[in-house]
């Protein structure tokens, strides 16, 4: 089976303010993007499972057709720069998404 990194052009994570992490997947092929959205692969449940977090900590799932993108926003386990926190910019939390299996 293919993984998300085989079919997407951009997979990234970033702070959305100090208390949230936002995960973006951007496609370069319109058909693939539409098929991906249609199959509802990107859900709160899937993101919660990938990151071992509660579904309630997945704040939103969005599709953004102008950029052929989908986006998920999660609560940061620790605020940016808090004691014990590991990634101040939140830019290296995307890898679990890369390995998401997709059956298109």
């Amino acid at each position: 089976m293919k993984t998300l990194k085989d079919i997407a052009a951009v997979i990234r994570s970033k702070n959305a303010g100090p208390y949230e992490l936002t995960l973006d997947v951007i496609f370069s092929d319109k058909d693939v993007f539409e098929a991906f959205c249609q199959k509802k692969i990107f859900t709160k449940e899937v993101i919660a499972k990938l990151y071992h977090i509660e579904e309630t900590d997945v704040l939103s799932i969005m599709e953004f057709p102008p950029a052929m993108a989908v986006k998920a926003t999660i609560v940061r386990p620790l605020a940016s720069g808090a004691l014990g926190e590991r990634d101040v910019y939140g830019a290296q939390q995307h890898v679990p998404l890369m390995n998401l299996e997709v059956d298109l």
Binding site: N15, T22, F64, A67, K71
Partner: peptide, 9 residues
């Protein structure tokens, strides 16, 4: 428009 934002709309 997506970058660093939880909701691009």
């Amino acid at each position: 428009t997506l970058y660093e934002k939880s909701n691009p709309y």
